[in-house]
Every structure is written in C-alpha cells, then in structure tokens.
Design a protein around this nucleic acid. Structure first.
Length: 918
DNA sequence: GCAAGGTC
C-alpha cells in the first residue's frame, strides 16, 4: 500500500493552525498517529500523519508559514531615499521576494515540496490568506514543477469542518490574490512617494523642537495612518470652532413621602431668553401641575455580542484605559499560552456547532465567576440564552472566548489578569439573559408647558451580575395617577451654555476607523500607535487624542491644497476596487494603472502646491537655517530649467558613489547632465540667482570641496554657478575631473550612441548626455564650446615679475603679481605653485605648469613631483616643450591629459592659458 | 529611513 501512497505537503498560515489541523486530521483511524519533526525554521514545525481522501491514501506533511512569506519592495536602484525623484516611485519597478528572516521557511517549503506530489493550502480563508497561498505556491512550484495544487476552505478549527474541507478540496482563487497585489502595490507607491516628499521637504526646513533628534524623524504618509489622523484633527477643529451659546430651560421638582421626582422640560432648552422668560412667567402665575400621562413598561438591557477584536480593544480602553496596542500584545500572550482563542477576528457571532456549554463548564471552579457559570448551566435558573451575533463573520475565526481555565498564572501582569477576566466575563455575559427593568414615565402639564420624569426599577440583573463593567442605573420616583394635581416643590428658570463635543477617545477612534474601513482588526492599533510614534498626535490620561502641531499642520496643508488625502475616501475607493478585482469585474492591471495614474497626478499637484504645506507648518514652527536634507542628499533641489528638453528642471543630485551632478528630471527621456568636480564633499543649492548667466534663473550652488584634493589656493568653500560664468568651477572640473569618470562606460565611445561624447564633462557616462556649461546646449562639453572659440584671444604672453626679491609672475587672470609658494597639504606637500595675491582672484598654477620661459628664467631648481617620479608628466620636465597634449597630475595622483578648453592648444591647460581673462 | 498586511 505504501507504494500507492501520495505524499502531500500541507501549509497553514501560522504554526498554531498547522498544529490544530494536524491534530484533528490525525485522530482518524488510518492516520498512524501524529509525528512531529523540526523544519528549518524553529517556529514552524512539520507534522506528519496518514490520511485518506476519497479512498486515496496520503502521507501528509503539515507545516506553516508565519503570515506573508514575501514582501514587495522597490528595485534596489530606488530604495535609497535620495536615489530618485519621489514621483518616479509611481513607475519604478517593484519586486516581490522572500525577506532574509523568512529564508529558513522558504527552505523548508522547497525541501518538502521536492518530496511531494500534492500541495494543499490551508491559509486563512480571506483575501490576504489567498495571497499568501500564492506566495507559497510560487516557492513550492519553483522547487517542484509537477505539484498538484489544492486549496482547503475552512471557517473554523472544528473537527467536522476540517474533515469536510479536506474531502472537498478546491483550486486557489487567483482573483482574491490579485486584489491583495493591487493593495500592496498602491500602498507602497503612495506611501513611499508621499513620505519621502514631505519628509525631505519639511524636516530640515523647520525647527521641530518636539523631537530630541529631529534630523531623524520621519514625516510619514500612509493611506491608513493619515485618515486616522484626519479623524483626530477633525474633532479637534470641531472643538476649536465651537462657540458657547447660552440657553435657558425650566426645571421642576416634586416630592412627597415616597421620594423626589425631577421633571425635565419637554422643550429641552431655548436659546431665546425673552421667549423662555415669558413661558416661565406663565408657569409661575399658574403653577399647578396636572398629570397627563403615566406609562409603565418592561425594559430589557441586552448583553453584548460575542467579542470581536475591535470590541475587545474598545472595551479594554473604556474599562481599563488600556491602549489598543497593549491590549493586542496581552491578548496575543494569552492566545499563545492557550488561555483565549485567536485574538484577531472580525466575527461577532458563534457558529451553531460551537459547544458553548463546555466553555462555560470550564469556568465553574473560579472563585469570582464560578458560581455564575454554575447558575448559567442550571436549567432551573433560566439564565441561559443562545448568544445573538452582530452580523459580522470573517469566515476564519470564532469570536474571542476563553479556551482554558485559569485562576491567574504567576507570569501574568495585572493587564493579563484584567484582559483574561474581560474575555471570560464577556463570554459568560453573551450567553446570558438580558437584564430586566420596570420603567415608569410620568408627564405633567403646567400652564400649557409639558414636563416629564422617569423612574426605573431593576427586576432582574441577569447578565449584569457577571458583566460588572456595565451598570444600569435605577431611580425611584413617587407614584402618580392620571389627572392627579400637585404644586411643584421648585420651579426654576435655569441657564446653561452649549459645550463642544469631547476629544476622540481610543474607543471612538476605533469606531471611526471601523466604520470607514480603515485598517483591519489586526492593524488598527498599529495605525493609532504610529500616529503617536510619529509625533502626529498625543493621548491624554483619559485616553483622548489631540493632534500635535505637526499633525495639525500636515492635515491643514493638504486641506488647503484642496486634497482630501487625510480623509478616508481614498481607502474606501481602494477597498471597492479590491472587491471588483476579487469578483472579476475589473482586472488587476487596469485597476493598478488607473489608480496609480490618479495618485501620480495628485502627487504632482501636491508637490507644485508645496507652499501650502510650508505655510501651514510656518504657523506652528520656526523656519530653520539648516540646509535642507534634500539639498544635502541631492534629492532634487532645482538648479535651473533644462536647456535640452526645455520641459523639466535640472536638479542637484548625489550619486551612490558620492559624486555630484546636476541632472534633468526628465531622465531617462532626457539625458542631459552636468557633472561636478570629483573633489566635491558637499553641495547645496542656494536661493541666490546668478546675475550673469542666461536663460535664468540659475541658482548658485554652495560647494564645499575636499581640502586635500584641490589646489591650495582654491577655497574649500565656494559659491558657484553651473551656467558658464564660473571660472573656478571650470578649473576644478579640469583639475580634479568629474564624478562621471567613476561610472563605468556601458558601451564604447564613438559608436554612434547619441548620449556618448568623445570628451569633456560627461565623457565617462553612457547614461547622460553632456550639456555645455557655457551655452547650455547639448552635444559638446564646455571645453569644446564653439562660443568660446570665437571669443577674443591673443592677450599678452606671461612675463616674470620680481618684487621685493620674491619670485612672482603676473596673474593670468587679473594681472596682479602671483607669488611662488609651497604646498603643505598631505597630497601635495612640498610642491611649488604660483597663486595670485589679489583679493578675490583665484588664479593658481603649479610651478611645473607655468610657462617654459618663466621656469627657465626663475631657474630655482625646484623640482615637481612628476619630474622627481621621473614620469615626465609635467611640462617642466619636458623642458618647456610646446608640442603634444598637456598633461597634469590631479591631487589624487591621477594623470589627466587634454587640451586648453579656452584656446584649444594641447600644450597647456586653461589655468595657464596666455589668452584667458584678457 | 517610506505603506499596510500577515504573524513569531
């Protein structure tokens, strides 16, 4: 028989389900018992047993995952915050993969799948479960292409149900999984784009004094967290907007030897003082009251529905002021230890098949509620009532109920005690009769005005005996008969003022989220916690939420833009889209495309309206003097309009290798780029507009160079322009090279690729097209700019000028004397150079690069590094030869060869060009 | 570093 056996791999969503289902299935007579062995993951064991499906013998291996096996992430290139413009995140490639911490589960699945012919998926029967099922399929099918794949559909871990689903296996539902794929992708793209956008925009622009280390705070945006914040802000604004209004009401009391009755004016209250006074005076003039109605009726107060997650969270908050986050942590502990059922459930009604009485029976021994449990099971007490559900069913889990008796464990905290007691008392309450009361309502007439009073007597407390968290007040009033007349003890005209609604409590907030479909039972508390962690909201000692300045400013900013990104509509729209994908009405790709297109447009609009966010933030926070994070990280501070495509801005960026460039936002459609010197340490776009370069505006950049990598007479700090007017920048590009040299050439030069250039600023990059910094035209670099070639040239040749015995030469730039000095930086120690003494002039030339005539004339024998090395790289070592390419050694020791970009002469570089600056 | 959804 063993030969005919099929081996099947069963996979559940969590270890507890694998264990429970294996336990049930292995109790059949053919199972040969239940064996357990370790898998690769310490949490996910493998259970083994035999089973017969419709006459076919199976050898079952039953293991589990822990929720989602895979994660959706952006392609590596887009993961770093400053790697791209956030708007690109609407199209950037995304990948689903198994994260590091789940690799061991993947190995178990692969190993077991290879040994199996069938795969049976026991994931939870909801959309997320179906999606996880397909993640499991992807991993298993890669290991074994011939698997026969089945889905078990079950709604409770009950013997009959589990056997039934095993005997009636179906195929997994791709549409359900697709719906989740849609949600994941939209959440990721929207969340990441807006989070990066608002964080980079605002974090460094304002003094956010609430956080000790405000440089690291993240101003996140999420389709669940923002609407949750929206509820808090909206209530807060409602309170702020409330204007107290005075009102008047007439109150009346009457007492006799039976007690006191307080009668309320049936008009409630009036805001018109004159009117209230007139009516009151009429009552005073004829104060005799006549009883016009006496109504007695039985009233029932019903026990709560069976406990769902949200109700558990709301009630723990209301009764114990326990946060939803703590509630879920403690509930998880109790569940793990087997004391309560699965705590993440939307179901608020018990299945007919649940053995409710045995759950009650287990609690009979408890000293606090044991006697109540015994009464419940006593038919004579007439206390039992089948629980009435609230109409919600997630088809996966029963309502939260006790699963094991405990009088309290030594490891339990006070919160564990409270929560276990709540679960037990709630369960006992919902299988109990409602409380019964007798209510008496009396109405009287005084001078035509009607008043009423109400009294209540509790006839049977029933469930209230065990559910001590709820009370039902009783008040006794005297007996009245129809037509009876009396004179009130007091008849007063009282004033009051209207009050604003209270701040939202945690229970209110959970209620709002539940109603609007924000989050799931398993995640709502996370969204609330996130608001506190992000400094968007605070919770006071009464568990009531207020927005912080930051939270209010963000909502205000988007509100001013006219976007309802902080309202729950976006989530509601996504939920309805998901439903349509689930039922096949819409295809996944079409929903994704439409939704992302809309959100991208919205993002783009929001970005162009960013002043609204700035204005809102300015109300609450001081502007900071810090350079913005985006500028620091080159995320895209605009430098100028792109002269090539004319369509996009060019922004300053820092590449992953540390080099800087100014690139067009239209990349990859437009590849124009300007690479900055490789010696650059930091660069920040300033608000200063260059007054020389056109077309403007071109914003100047504050550069900070690495001291040791630039010639000694250049300032490490330089406010420069990429528009073409900045000689210093040009010299440094030529001397130090650009970042683009470090990027490997994708294809060889000169192969006709339009983005390649034969030399110049972007010579190493096959990705970007060069842009001349002189004329802003594409196709050549600044050193080959035709506009420069036509400039007036032919100035006087350099001369030696001696003053006070010092060696000096006239400055090529301004004509002032240049002194011979000795470098003392690490990279160039001992090397001689000439530098201009004139203030504000940056002219500099290494001694060996000075003109041959001058070197010969100075004849001081100073030797360059190059000549000492014998490399023959400096012009000096060639004895002043004017033929061949000029060569130069950069500060990093790299030889650079080329020609003067000013006059095109290959014998020297521009910094030594005789024609420059004239 | 970013979302929300599973779960340990």
């Amino acid at each position: 028989m063993a030969d005919r056996q099929i081996r099947a791999l069963n996979v559940a969503e969590k270890p507890s389900v694998a264990k429970a289902v294996s336990g049930i299935l292995s109790r059949s007579p053919q199972s040969n018992g239940l064996r357990v062995r370790e898998g690769r993951s310490r949490y996910n064991k493998i259970f083994e047993f035999d089973y017969v499906i419709r006459g076919q013998h199976f050898q079952m291996a039953f293991t589990s995952v822990t929720g989602h096996l895979m994660e959706l992430e952006f392609d590596d290139r887009y993961r770093k915050w400053y790697s791209c413009d956030p708007i690109e995140l609407y199209h950037a490639p995304v990948l689903k993969s198994v994260p590091q911490d789940k690799l061991d589960i993947r190995r178990t699945l692969e190993e077991e799948a290879r040994k199996s012919q069938w795969l049976i998926l026991w994931l939870d029967c909801d959309r997320e479960g179906e999606n996880i099922a397909f993640e499991v399929v992807e991993v298993c099918a890669q290991a074994n292409r011939n698997l026969n794949i089945w889905r078990a559909r079950f709604s409770a871990l009950i013997e009959r149900e589990i056997h039934h689903s095993m005997q009636n296996l179906v195929r997994p539902n791709q549409l359900f999984a697709d719906a989740v794929d849609v949600r994941q992708e939209i959440d990721l793209r929207i969340g990441a784009s807006f989070t990066r956008f608002q964080t980079m925009l605002l974090r460094d622009a304002f003094v956010l004094d609430f956080a000790s280390e405000d440089r690291n705070i993240i101003l996140s945006y999420g389709p669940c967290q923002f609407p949750t914040l929206g509820f808090i802000v909206e209530r807060y604004w409602e309170i702020q907007a409330h204007e107290p209004e005075e009102f008047w009401t007439i109150n009346c009391t009457h007492n006799n030897n039976e007690g006191i009755a307080t009668f309320n004016w049936m008009r409630g209250h009036l805001f018109d003082y004159t009117c209230a006074t007139m009516l009151y005076e009429m009552c005073i003039q004829e104060p005799t009251a006549t009883v016009t109605k006496v109504r007695q009726q039985e009233k029932l107060k019903y026990p709560p529905h069976p406990l769902s997650t949200i109700e558990l969270e709301k009630r723990a908050s209301r009764y114990f002021r326990m946060s939803s986050e703590i509630t879920m942590k403690v509930a998880e502990d109790l569940y793990q230890a087997g004391f309560i059922s699965y705590p993440r459930t939307e179901t608020d009604g018990f299945s007919e098949r649940t053995d409710l009485r045995s759950i009650v029976q287990e609690q009979e021994g408890h000293q606090l509620w044991g006697s109540y449990a015994r009464r419940l099971l006593d038919p004579e007490a007439n206390l039992w009532r089948h629980p009435v559900g609230g109409g919600h069913d997630d088809k996966a889990h029963p309502p939260i109920h006790p699963t094991k008796f405990s009088t309290g464990e030594s490891s339990w905290s006070a919160d564990h005690h409270k929560l276990y007691e709540l679960v037990v008392r709630h369960f006992l309450a919902c299988v109990s009769q409602p409380a019964v009361g007798a209510e008496t309502t009396v109405e009287i007439d005084i001078a035509g005005e009607l008043f009423s009073a109400c009294g209540r007597v509790i006839l049977a407390k029933n469930y209230l005996d065990v559910y001590r968290y709820e009370s039902w007040g009783g008040s006794i009033i005297p007996t009245y008969d129809f037509g009876q007349q009396f004179v009130p003890a007091t008849l007063t005209l009282d004033s009051g003022v209207t009050r604003p609604p209270p701040l939202l409590s945690e229970a209110d907030l959970l209620g709002c989220m539940d109603k609007a479909g924000i989050g799931t039972d398993a995640t709502m508390h996370d969204h609330i916690k996130k608001l506190l962690d992000r400094f968007y909201a605070t919770k006071d000692s009464n568990t009531r939420f207020s927005p912080t300045n930051l939270g209010e400013a963000l909502v205000m900013g988007y509100d001013e833009m006219g976007y309802e990104l902080w309202k729950p509509y976006l989530r509601a729209m996504m939920e309805s889209d998901m439903k349509e994908v689930s039922n096949g009405a819409k295809r996944k790709a079409e929903v994704l495309e439409t939704c992302l297109q809309q959100m991208k447009a919205c993002f783009s609009d929001a970005r162009s309206n960013k002043e609204k966010l700035f204005e809102a933030m300015s109300i609450f926070f001081q502007r900071s003097n810090r350079p913005s994070g985006s500028a620091q990280h080159m995320a895209g501070e605009v430098v100028r309009r792109c002269g090539v495509c004319q369509n996009n801005d060019m922004v300053l960026r820092k590449k992953p290798d540390g080099n800087f460039m100014v690139g067009c936002l239209g990349f990859p459609l437009c590849r124009s780029a300007f690479w900055l010197p490789g010696s650059l340490l930091e660069a920040v776009v300033t608000q200063t507009v260059c007054e020389i370069c056109t077309p403007g505006p071109i914003f100047k950049i504050q550069f900070k160079f690495r001291r040791v990598e630039i010639p000694p007479n250049f300032d490490a700090d330089h406010l420069g322009c990429i528009g073409g007017c900045d000689d210093t920048l040009r010299q440094l590009v030529e001397i130090c090279g650009t970042g683009s040299r470090n990027i490997p050439t994708v294809s060889g030069r000169g192969q006709g690729h339009p983005s390649l250039s034969s030399s110049g600023n972007v010579h190493g990059s096959a990705r970007r097209q060069e842009v001349c910094m002189h004329c802003s035209q594409a196709g050549h670099s600044s050193n080959l700019c035709p506009s420069l070639a036509s400039r007036g040239r032919g100035g006087r040749p350099p001369e030696i000028n001696q003053q006070n015995g010092e060696e000096s030469i006239p400055c090529d730039s301004c004509g002032a004397p240049c002194s011979l000095r000795t470098a003392n930086t690490d990279a160039n120690r001992g090397r001689k150079f000439y530098s201009c003494r004139s203030q504000g002039c940056n002219f500099f030339v290494w001694e060996e690069n000075a003109t041959g005539g001058r070197r010969a004339a100075t004849g001081n024998g100073s030797q360059s590094n190059q000549s000492r090395r014998g490399g023959g790289l400096g012009r000096g070592s060639r004895g002043g030869a004017r033929s061949g390419n000029a060569t130069f050694v950069s500060a990093t020791g790299e030889p650079i060869s080329g020609r003067c970009f000013a006059c095109g002469d290959p014998s020297h570089f521009a910094n030594a060009c005789p024609s420059r600056g004239r």
